[in-house]
C-alpha cells in the first residue's frame, strides 16, 4: 500500500515538474530575464552538482569539482575564440577533456584514504585557478577570455535543427540547459538503477567487501569520478558560453564547496537531491541579495542549522509521513464537523 503511494507521488511530481519547467515557466516568464537567468544558472549548477553526487554515491567527498568546471569552461572558451569550431562540437569536447583529465588524475588520487583525498580535492580547485592564471599564452591569464561567441545555428543536412542564439534572448539557453539537465538526470537514474549503481552503493557501504568478492573496485571508482568530471566540464562549458566570458576565478574553492552543499541540501540519498538543492539555494540566494551584506552570514547559519537538524537533507522528510499526518489531521477535523 505504502509503495503505490510512493510511486504515484513520484509520477505526479515528475509530470508537474516537467510541465512547469519546460512549458509554464518559459512561457509565462519569457520576458522576465531575471528569473530566466536564475533558472538557467540553477540548471547549469545542477548538472555540475549531479557529478558531485555520483562521487558521494561511491562514498567519497569531492571538493574539487570547480577545477573541472574551469577546465571545461576554458576548453570551450579557447576552442570558440581561437578556432572556428562550432559550439555544438566544443560542448561535448569540453566535457570529454574534463573527463579525460579526471580519469588521469583520478587513478593516483582515488587510492588515497579519507581525509587526504578530501583535502587534496579541495586544493585541486585552487590549483586549477593558478594553472589558468599562469598559462597566459593559452588563457590570457588574469585578463580572462571575453566576447565568447554565442552558439551558432546547428544545421544537419541543410535543415536548421537548432536556431542561432541571439544576444539578449534567454529562451534558447533556457531550453538548452533544461534539456541537457533532464537528459543527464535520466541517464544517471538509469545508471543508478542498473548493476553499476548497485556496485557504487556497495562501494559506499563496504568497499573492502566489494573487493573481496572479486569486483574491480578501482574500475568503478574511476568510472564514477570520470563521469563526475565530465559533468563538471560540461556544466562549465555551458556556463562560460552563457556568460560569454571566463576568468581564472570563475570557479573558485567556494564554488566547489557549493556544489557539495547543493547535494547535501537536497539529500544525498536521492538523485534529485542536488537538483533540488541547486535550485532552492540559488533562487533563495538571489532573493537574499536585498540583504546583500548579511547574505553569506545567513547562508552559513542556514547551513549549520540544516546540518544539525536535517543532516540527511530536505528529501529525507518522508513523504509518507506527511501524507499520514495530513490524513490524521483531516479525519480529526471531520469528526469535529460531524458532531
Amino acid at each position: 500500500m505504502h509503495k503505490t503511494y510512493k510511486n504515484s507521488y513520484k509520477l505526479y511530481f515528475a509530470i508537474i515538474v516537467f510541465v512547469v519547467y519546460l512549458i509554464i515557466v518559459p512561457l509565462a516568464f519569457r520576458n522576465n530575464n531575471y528569473l530566466l537567468n536564475v533558472i538557467i544558472t540553477s540548471s547549469i549548477l545542477s548538472i555540475i552538482s549531479l557529478g558531485v553526487w555520483l562521487v558521494f554515491a561511491i562514498g567519497r567527498i569531492n571538493i574539487g569539482q570547480g577545477a573541472f568546471a574551469l577546465i571545461g569552461g576554458y576548453t570551450s572558451a579557447i576552442l570558440l575564440t581561437k578556432t572556428g569550431i562550432s559550439f555544438w562540437l566544443a560542448l561535448p569536447l569540453s566535457g570529454i577533456l574534463a573527463g579525460l583529465i579526471g580519469y588521469l588524475i583520478g587513478r593516483p588520487i582515488l587510492r588515497l584514504k579519507g581525509v587526504y583525498f578530501d583535502m587534496l580535492t579541495l586544493c585541486m580547485t585552487q590549483f586549477a585557478t593558478l594553472a589558468m592564471l599562469n598559462m597566459t599564452k593559452l588563457t590570457s591569464g588574469a585578463r580572462g577570455i571575453i566576447n565568447i561567441p554565442l552558439p551558432k545555428a546547428l544545421k544537419i543536412a541543410g535543415i536548421t535543427v537548432i536556431p542561432q542564439f541571439t544576444p539578449g534572448n534567454y529562451i534558447p539557453f533556457y531550453y538548452l540547459t533544461a534539456l541537457i539537465l533532464i537528459f543527464t538526470f535520466f541517464a544517471l537514474v538509469r545508471l543508478n538503477n542498473s548493476r553499476v549503481g548497485r556496485v557504487f552503493s556497495s562501494l559506499r557501504q563496504h568497499e573492502g567487501l566489494t573487493a573481496s568478492i572479486g569486483i574491480d573496485v578501482v574500475k568503478y571508482r574511476l568510472l564514477a569520478y570520470t563521469i563526475c568530471c565530465f559533468l563538471g566540464g560540461l556544466g562549465g562549458s555551458l556556463f562560460v558560453v552563457y556568460t560569454q566570458s571566463i576568468f581564472p576565478t570563475t570557479f573558485k574553492v567556494a564554488d566547489s564547496v557549493n556544489f557539495m552543499l547543493y547535494c547535501f541540501f537536497g539529500g544525498l540519498e536521492y538523485l534529485f537531491g542536488p537538483i533540488l538543492g541547486s535550485f532552492l539555494l540559488t533562487i533563495s540566494f538571489e532573493y537574499l541579495r536585498v540583504i546583500q551584506k548579511y547574505q553569506e552570514a545567513i547562508y552559513a547559519v542556514l547551513l549549520i542549522l540544516m546540518m544539525l537538524f536535517l543532516p540527511n537533507g530536505l528529501l529525507s522528510i518522508r513523504i509518507g509521513q506527511l501524507h499520514d499526518k495530513t490524513k490524521l489531521f483531516i479525519s480529526k477535523n471531520k469528526k469535529k464537523v460531524e458532531m
Binding site: 547535501f264 544525498l268 553569506e296 552570514a297 547562508y299 547551513l303 549549520i304 546540518m307 543532516p311 540527511n312
Partner: peptide, 23 residues
C-alpha cells in the same frame, strides 16, 4: 552522534568556517 553519513561532519565544519568568515 546523530548523523547517518560521516561526510556530514565535514559540511558542518565548512558551515562554521563560512559563519566565521561572513561575520
Amino acid at each position: 552522534r546523530e548523523s547517518r553519513r560521516p561526510e556530514s561532519s565535514m559540511l558542518l565544519a565548512i558551515g562554521t568556517a563560512k559563519l566565521l568568515e561572513s561575520v
